[in-house]
Structures are given as C-alpha cells and as structure tokens.
C-alpha cells in the first residue's frame, strides 16, 4: 500500500479541479471498492480527494415527473426510498440484491456506477491482466471464468483480450430505466445516457467508462416511466446473499389483452457493461406473454453470444441461464404460471 495525500475540497468544482490537474489523483466516496484496491496494491493514487458531502445526498422529484438521485445518496437510502420503491421497483430491488447491508450503508450512487470488475485475475497483481496491465494478457480466458462475459467481450488478439463483467446491480436497473448520468468536468457539466457510460472492452480494456480523468458523477436522473411501475429485478447468483450476479435481469413489460405492447430488458453479469437487451425487446413487443415468447426473446439477444470456453470453468452455462432467468423474470411480471 502506497501512502497518499488526502484532500477534502470545499465543493465539487474544487474536487474536479484537483483531480483533473493530477493524473495520479482519485476521487474517494464510500470507498467500498477503492479501499480494497488500495490494500491490494491495485490502485496507487498519489492523492485521494474525498467527495463526501460535495455532491447531493438527496433524492428529489424532477419537474418532468422523474427523480433525480444525488451521487452521494447511499445505496441503502436509495433502496429504501418510497418513491423509488413505488415508481421504479426494479431499482429498489436491484439495490437490495447488491452487496450486504453494511456495504450498502457506505456505498454511494456515483461510486456504485464506477466500481470495477471483480475478475479474480484483475484483483491479483501476480497474474496477467490486460485491464490492469495493458498488453500482459488475459488470465481469465483459460482460467476461472465463472463470473465472466458472454456478450461483447474481446477474446482476441491476446494483448487486448478481456472477458470481464461489470459487477453493479444498480447499473443494470438504471439501464432499463433509460437513466441519464450527470457529470461535472473541468469544462463544465454534461449528461450521458447510462447505456453509453460504460464501455465494451474493445481494444482498450483498461477503460471501464467514457469518463475523462477528473470527471465526477454528480447525479443520476430518472425520466418518468409509467412502464417501470411494473418492473422487476431478478438476480441469479451462487449464494442467496452477498454474491455477484452470474446473470441478472432487469425487466419491465406492458401487456394489453394477450399482447406485449412495450418491453424493457437489461442483463447483468454477462458483459463489460450493463447490457440493454434491445434485440429481446423487439422480439417481445407484439407477441403473446408466454414462456415460448420469453425464451425466443432471450435467444434473440444471445445470437451473437460467445461464452468463455475455459478448461478451468467457463461461461457456457450462462447461455441457458440467461434464457431461464429472462423467462422466469418476465413470467413473473406477466403473472403467468407456466414452467419448464
């Protein structure tokens, strides 16, 4: 662990100015991921700029009927907010499905978005990892890849390969809600669709998001979304609590008569970013709310899927699991009783 300076500027602009001016500085919010990284030697900032209290800790009603969530809102408070629970149940459920009670009390909205992959090799300084050390190779491709990607990953060439997944539950719910992320940079404020905040690894797996160094998440805006009132988050994991998703599904559908008239679907645990399942959404709309429809929609999303075929545990099982989880989640929303 490398010593670092600790600063606490008076306002968000000051924090952004400090970090923007120093390539080795980093923002500190709840610290639930960054402090681990400091201990592991994975992050070696020269300066930590504490943004606690510099961004809003409030959830406010927006004029358009949506909600604005301050970046400093703790995960536990977001999960418990009555408006979120009533208007965006998928988000409240996703929050409660993530981490543990203790971590949710510390972790912030902004920090949750910017947490990094839990790939074992990324977190282990003694193994090659293109995300941590560009060009060193991907240990997961032939390693322990149970939590890794099936969509949008880079399998080759070797010096940029990355099959890591983004670990956030919250971000998957935000993806389905068409959230906007407000960001403050040295040049001023901008708003980014959540769906484009996180990147696919492409040829540059070290970059998780499109943010420039020094840009600070200040808020997440949720547009009004009548369909979200009937939404759900279904998380499949290896134990009942305190585990990252193998596959998760954020879903909302509207059914009129025997027909799905609108659908929103996003997947977690399958890609380097929260995966908005647009192909599945297209397949759902206009079809009857049956298990066959749900399975066909999931399979439509998986047409280009490529699991990690590792001798030490790959992700091929996630293809049937995505289909199963999407089916279970949508069946629950549609109120159906069908089963495998």
């Amino acid at each position: 662990m490398k010593p670092f300076a600790y600063e606490r500027p008076d306002d968000a602009q000051g924090a952004v100015a400090t970090v923007s001016a120093d390539p080795d500085a980093a923002f500190l919010a709840g610290g639930t991921n960054l402090v681990d990284h400091l201990r592991l030697g994975l992050a070696t900032p020269s300066t930590l700029v504490d943004v606690t209290g510099l961004t809003s800790t409030e959830i406010t009603d927006a004029p358009d009927g949506g909600l604005s969530i301050g970046a400093g809102v703790r995960n536990a408070d977001l999960a418990a907010d009555e408006r979120v629970r009533a208007r965006y149940p998928v988000l409240a459920q996703a929050m409660l499905a993530g981490a543990s009670g203790q971590l949710r009390n510390m972790a912030t909205t902004g920090g949750n978005l910017l947490q990094r992959t839990r790939c074992a090799y990324f977190q282990d300084l003694t193994t090659p990892c293109n995300k941590r050390q560009p060009g060193s190779g991907c240990s997961a491709l032939e390693g322990w890849a149970r939590h890794h990607a099936v969509l949008g990953a880079t399998h080759e060439p070797a010096d940029v390969a990355c099959v890591a997944t983004h670990p956030s539950d919250m971000a998957v719910a935000l993806a389905v809600l068409d959230a906007q992320v407000r960001v403050l940079g040295a040049e001023g404020e901008r708003s980014i669709p959540l769906s484009t905040l996180h990147r696919l690894p492409g040829g540059e797996p070290s970059r998780d998001t499109v943010l420039a160094h020094g840009e600070l998440v200040t808020a997440v805006d949720l547009p009004p979304s009548p369909i979200a009132a009937r939404s759900t988050y279904y998380k499949v994991r290896d134990r009942a609590s305190f585990a990252f998703a193998l596959v998760s599904v954020a879903a909302a559908i509207e059914v009129v008569g025997d027909t799905i008239t609108d659908a929103r679907l996003a997947l977690g645990g399958v890609a380097h970013k929260p995966w908005r399942a647009t192909a599945a959404e297209e397949a759902l709309v206009g079809a009857p709310p049956t298990d066959d429809t749900f399975r066909a929609a999931a399979r439509a999303e998986l047409v280009d899927a490529r699991p990690v075929e590792s001798p030490r545990g790959g992700t091929a099982f996630k293809l049937p699991l995505v289909t199963a989880a999407v089916t279970a989640a949508l069946r629950g929303l549609a109120g159906g009783e069908e089963h495998a």
């Binding site: 074992a120 090799y121 003694t126 193994t127 322990w144 030490r312 545990g313």
Partner: peptide, 13 residues
C-alpha cells in the same frame, strides 16, 4: 479455486 497454471487459489477473499 486453485489455478494450476499459477499454483495458487485465485478466489482468495
């Protein structure tokens, strides 16, 4: 999970 290529347990937390 013992990754035999490296000789150590990789899910070490």
């Amino acid at each position: 999970v013992l990754d035999d290529r490296f000789g150590h347990v990789v899910n070490r937390d």
